[in-house]
């Protein structure tokens, strides 16, 4: 479902005299349908950078990021922006660590807007059910999440990431600000997505959570800092 070949990424900080920060080199990652691969490595090694590159959120300097989209392989690293928009809508889901709140949009709509291939009415029903499952009570569904707690915002973010049933899911610390009981729900949701054939790449700080969801580990090792 997802494969990278020779992926490379460095940041060039022009505001700091063109400082070069190589982060990823020779990344060869592959994830099959129904499989969850956990990225592991020390803080700052480049786990989030890799995940963002897979989503097309960060620019890849070299290599390919092949995603199976509607039966064909699309190279996210080379695809036109509007192709990436389409792949994200139908194939590639991403749960960032923090929710980016949109002013005035209620939690329910944020989640329902990410549903795929269902009517507006169905999307709203699915969104409500998913929010309830994540212990966001009904009275909060009509509120914009700007005032929600960190953990509540993360659960809205998770509901949005999972509602579409995307064939490829990228998860950056999905349980970071959740207590054990709530993390358990997320573990169940990941297991269900795998059963439905999703290919998942995730970063899980919590080793217990990681051991329960991951089929394999992919090590991300820090590169030597160059000047």
């Amino acid at each position: 479902m997802l494969r990278t070949e020779g992926l490379e990424k460095q940041f060039v900080l022009h505001l700091r005299g063109g400082l070069r920060l190589p982060v990823l080199a020779h990344v060869d990652l592959h994830v099959a349908a129904g499989e969850c691969v956990a990225l592991v490595g020390p803080s700052g090694a480049g786990k989030s950078t890799l995940l963002r590159a897979l989503y097309g959120n960060y620019h890849a300097d070299a290599g390919r990021i092949l995603v199976r989209h509607e039966g064909a392989l699309v190279d996210i690293a080379a695809a036109a922006p509007r192709t990436v928009v389409r792949v994200r809508a139908d194939t590639l889901g991403y749960v960032s660590q923090f929710l980016r709140v949109v002013p005035r949009v209620p939690a329910l709509d944020i989640v329902a807007d990410a549903a795929r291939g269902v009517s507006r009415e169905q999307a709203r029903e699915m969104a409500a059910a998913l929010l309830l499952r994540l212990h966001i009570p009904a009275r909060m569904h009509a509120l914009p999440p700007a005032t929600f707690s960190g953990g509540e915002q993360q659960r809205v973010n998770l509901a949005r990431g999972f509602i579409g049933g995307h064939p490829v899911l990228l998860l950056d610390e999905p349980t970071a600000s959740l207590d054990a009981a709530r993390a358990d729900i997320v573990v169940d949701m990941i297991a269900e997505a795998k059963q439905n054939g999703a290919a998942i790449v995730g970063i899980f700080h919590d080793v217990a959570v990681r051991d329960r969801v991951a089929d394999r580990l992919h090590h991300v090792t820090p590169l030597q800092d160059a000047a």
Binding site: F11, H14, L15, R52, N57, Y58, P81, V85
Partner: peptide, 21 residues
């Protein structure tokens, strides 16, 4: 020029980096 979130989160050009920062 490019995908909105990519240009804003990982700007490549010095001027864009300045604008974003």
């Amino acid at each position: 020029t490019g995908l909105t979130d990519q240009v804003l989160d990982d700007p490549q050009h010095p001027y864009t980096q300045l604008l974003v920062s």
